[in-house]
């Protein structure tokens, strides 16, 4: 037992342990998702997060200690966002043809995301702090936290609601689009990226590269539009 403790103390001091745990948890989550025929409810991000969190709680590991290892995975989000330019370039003809539908959906979708969140929060009598933190939830986390700061919301709460929105959208987008009988994968992907930013984009790439491309465009554009719209719309929406 003491040898195990010694080993644990040694390993938990290096980034290797939690980096490996993150990768193994994701590989396991991806295998579970594949075994369930990619059923959207078995979202690999959600499963991997739950697996790692249970391990952190069980081993009484703090988040900073975990992140010292996991930051190498987190860091790749930046280069991956840049890499979205490649599928975008490949699908450029389709994107050019869809310019008008895209811009219309961008404005209406962004307004719908902000207004529905704020109005529902008011209807359910949520406090001002929670209502403000919900407003930017469809923009990508970095932008959402920036907007949150500007409108006086708690950035940690904003980040959490943003990620919850990402996972929710990744789970519901496929069944919802099937229910609405929408077969246009450009439209489906664009909605996933607009509402559920990076996590929705990851889901769209799981479905096909055209959906993923439109999701990536929506993610970039809606970050910008949400940053402009939230400060404009909030005074009109708040009681």
């Amino acid at each position: 037992m003491t040898r195990f403790v010694d080993l644990w103390v040694y390993l938990s001091g290096t980034p290797l342990l939690w980096l490996t745990v993150t990768l193994v948890a994701y590989v396991a989550a991806d295998a579970i998702s594949a075994a369930l025929y990619r059923n959207p409810i078995a979202n690999p991000v959600l499963i991997a997060i739950l697996l790692v969190s249970v391990l952190l709680l069980a081993s009484k590991t703090t988040f900073p200690a975990y992140f010292a290892g996991a930051q190498f995975v987190h860091f790749l989000l930046g280069p991956a966002t840049v890499a979205l330019a490649v599928p975008l370039y490949r699908h450029l003809p389709e994107v050019k043809r869809a310019l008008i539908p895209m811009l219309s959906a961008l404005i209406l979708g962004s307004v719908a995301a902000i207004c529905s969140a704020v109005l529902l929060a008011e209807y359910l009598d949520l406090g001002r702090a929670a209502t403000l933190a919900l407003a930017p939830k469809s923009s990508t986390a970095a932008i959402a936290m920036g907007i949150g700061e500007k409108i006086g919301a708690n950035p940690a709460l904003v980040a959490m609601l943003t990620i919850m929105t990402g996972i929710t959208g990744a789970i519901v987008v496929t069944p919802l689009m099937n229910l609405l009988r929408l077969k246009n994968y450009a439209a489906r992907g664009f909605a996933a990226g607009l509402v559920s930013h990076g996590i929705g984009t990851a889901r769209a790439f799981q479905v096909n590269s055209l959906a993923g491309t439109f999701a990536g465009i929506a993610l970039g554009l809606n970050g910008l539009v949400t940053a402009i719209l939230v400060p404009l719309l909030l005074p009109l929406l708040l009681r």
């Binding site: 993150t22 990768l23 948890a25 994701y26 991806d30 690999p44 991000v45 959600l46 991997a48 997060i49 739950l50 790692v52 969190s53 952190l56 988040f63 975990y66 992140f67 996991a70 930051q71 995975v73 987190h74 790749l76 989000l77 280069p79 991956a80 890499a83 979205l84 490649v86 599928p87 986390a141 940690a156 980040a159 959490m160 990620i163 919850m164 990402g166 996972i167 990076g198 996590i199 984009t201 990851a202 889901r203 790439f205 799981q206 993923g212």
Partner: peptide, 19 residues
Amino acid sequence: ILRHLSMLFVPAGVGVVQQ
């Protein structure tokens, strides 16, 4: 890198669970 885009959200997601 895009094939496993989902994986890159795991660390941030775990941060959320802690809060």
